[in-house]
Amino acid sequence: MKLLQTEVTQLVLHSLPKDPPPRPDIPRSLDVLKVRQIPLGYYRYLYTVGRAHHWTSRNLPDDALAREIHGPNTRLQVLYCDGGPAGWFELDAGRAPKETRLVHFAIMPEYRGLGLARHLLAHAIIAGFEEQPSALTVETNTLDHPAALPLYRKMGFRPVSRRLVSTPAYEE
């Protein structure tokens, strides 16, 4: 297994922003829907967005993946643009006391550059505070999309730590 070196930045947000960003000015219908008991195949399709960034934490056998994503603390929402999946996020609400974690956040490649990331992240932030945690946290690393860290900061997240880690390279 090939290992890659990356710098991980942990960020935190302690309250909802005062003003959510405006809806993207695009002539398309946008819907963000909660997904309960997402089919494993559909989740795996959405998760493919992470291949380019070496996401591997959900490359699991069916039973282990189902335990992770169908667990009582997991919250998933999918952004649909004109009916097609354009992005998604996954929250872990309550595994850590008084904290919700934004586990995964992604815009599908064919929908990038339309202003959808800010729109979807605003939904993730609102959903992240639904259970009134004292903090919403997220981690990003230097293998993620280069716009990830600036977007999190623009939306109010503040870095609290950085660390170097070795992570498995995505291999098919």
Score class of each variant (00 low, 15 high):
2 K>H: 10
3 L>T: 06
3 L>M: 14
4 L>P: 09
6 T>W: 04
9 T>V: 09
9 T>I: 08
9 T>S: 07
9 T>E: 05
10 Q>M: 15
11 L>I: 01
12 V>P: 02
13 L>G: 04
14 H>I: 13
16 L>Y: 01
16 L>C: 03
17 P>W: 01
22 P>M: 07
24 P>K: 04
24 P>S: 07
25 D>A: 15
25 D>Y: 06
29 S>D: 13
30 L>C: 08
31 D>Y: 02
34 K>P: 10
34 K>I: 11
34 K>R: 14
36 R>W: 09
38 I>S: 06
39 P>H: 11
43 Y>E: 06
43 Y>R: 09
43 Y>D: 10
45 Y>T: 12
45 Y>S: 13
45 Y>F: 14
46 L>I: 06
47 Y>D: 05
47 Y>S: 01
49 V>F: 00
49 V>N: 04
51 R>C: 11
57 S>C: 06
58 R>P: 01
58 R>S: 13
62 D>H: 00
63 D>P: 00
63 D>Y: 00
64 A>D: 00
65 L>M: 02
65 L>A: 00
66 A>H: 00
67 R>I: 01
68 E>Q: 07
68 E>S: 07
68 E>P: 07
70 H>Q: 14
76 L>Q: 12
76 L>A: 04
76 L>E: 11
76 L>N: 06
77 Q>D: 08
77 Q>C: 10
78 V>P: 00
79 L>Y: 02
79 L>S: 02
81 C>G: 04
84 G>L: 15
85 P>T: 03
87 G>D: 04
88 W>G: 05
90 E>W: 08
90 E>M: 13
90 E>I: 14
92 D>W: 09
95 R>Y: 08
96 A>R: 12
96 A>T: 09
97 P>G: 05
97 P>N: 06
99 E>K: 15
99 E>P: 06
100 T>P: 10
102 L>D: 02
103 V>Y: 12
104 H>S: 12
106 A>H: 03
106 A>E: 11
107 I>W: 01
108 M>C: 05
109 P>V: 13
111 Y>G: 09
112 R>A: 06
112 R>P: 05
113 G>Y: 05
113 G>E: 05
115 G>E: 03
116 L>T: 10
118 R>F: 08
118 R>K: 15
119 H>R: 04
120 L>E: 08
121 L>A: 08
122 A>K: 03
126 I>P: 01
127 A>E: 13
127 A>G: 04
127 A>W: 02
127 A>V: 06
127 A>C: 10
130 E>S: 15
130 E>P: 02
133 P>C: 03
133 P>E: 04
134 S>C: 06
136 L>I: 14
137 T>K: 03
138 V>L: 07
138 V>A: 15
140 T>S: 12
148 A>H: 01
150 P>T: 12
151 L>T: 07
151 L>M: 08
153 R>K: 15
153 R>Q: 15
154 K>P: 04
156 G>V: 14
156 G>H: 05
157 F>R: 03
159 P>Q: 07
159 P>G: 09
159 P>Y: 10
160 V>N: 09
160 V>W: 07
161 S>T: 08
161 S>E: 12
161 S>H: 05
163 R>Q: 15
168 P>E: 14
170 Y>D: 10
172 E>K: 11
172 E>H: 11
